[in-house]
């Protein structure tokens, strides 16, 4: 290592410790300190620089961070497209539901406004006959049902009595 280099090294170290060095100067400083013919007096500086370089971020970190940010920026429009895609089915569902409700409401209104055809040809006497017949059908069925229940009841009672009669002689020898 010649005197010029040693002089440059001293200057750079001064600037480095004063935190005035530019990245290029720091690079030169590291190169000078890595010289195999470095005088012994600079060995602590070399060790310190090596230790610091271990803590320094890797060379491409800035580039990688920039690339990552760019990729995020590129991903964003894709996401917004996806959200647009998601909105379409919701919109369609809403439209379908509204359309169905409107159709249903229209049908209901039409049905409300369409009266049941009146039995105009029927006289009050005929209505009386028909109504009486309708209620009679119900009443007859109910009477039939009641009669069937009574028969079932009496059959059950008779069967119970017969069963008791059959059991009684056995119990009293």
């Amino acid at each position: 290592m010649d005197t010029t280099q040693i002089y440059k090294l001293r200057q750079l170290l001064e600037r480095f410790y004063a935190a005035d060095t530019a990245p290029d100067e720091e690079k030169s400083l590291r190169e000078l300190l890595s010289d195999p013919d470095l005088p012994e007096e600079f060995l602590p500086d070399r060790n310190m620089m090596e230790a610091m370089s271990m803590l320094l971020p890797s060379e491409n970190l800035e580039e990688r961070i920039s690339m990552r940010i760019d990729s995020f920026a590129q991903d964003e429009p894709v996401k917004s497209k996806e959200s647009v895609k998601f909105r379409w089915p919701i919109l369609l569902r809403w439209s379908a539901a509204v359309a169905a409700a409107v159709v249903f409401a229209v049908i209901s209104i039409i049905r409300i406004s369409t009266p049941i055809p009146a039995q105009a040809e029927m006289s009050p006497e005929e209505v009386y006959e028909q109504t009486a017949m309708a209620f009679m059908i119900f009443a007859e069925a109910l009477d039939k049902g009641r009669a069937a229940i009574e028969i079932a009841d009496s059959t059950t009672i008779n069967a119970s009595v017969k069963a008791m009669d059959a059991i009684f002689p056995i119990q009293q020898p």
Binding site: P117, P124, V127, Y128
Partner: peptide
């Protein structure tokens, strides 16, 4: 098919209330 509405029933009742 015979459909008897409430109005028709009421009219029938009014006409045949003696029966």
């Amino acid at each position: 098919t015979v459909y008897i509405s409430k109005a028709m029933l009421q009219m029938m009742v009014n006409e045949n209330h003696n029966n």
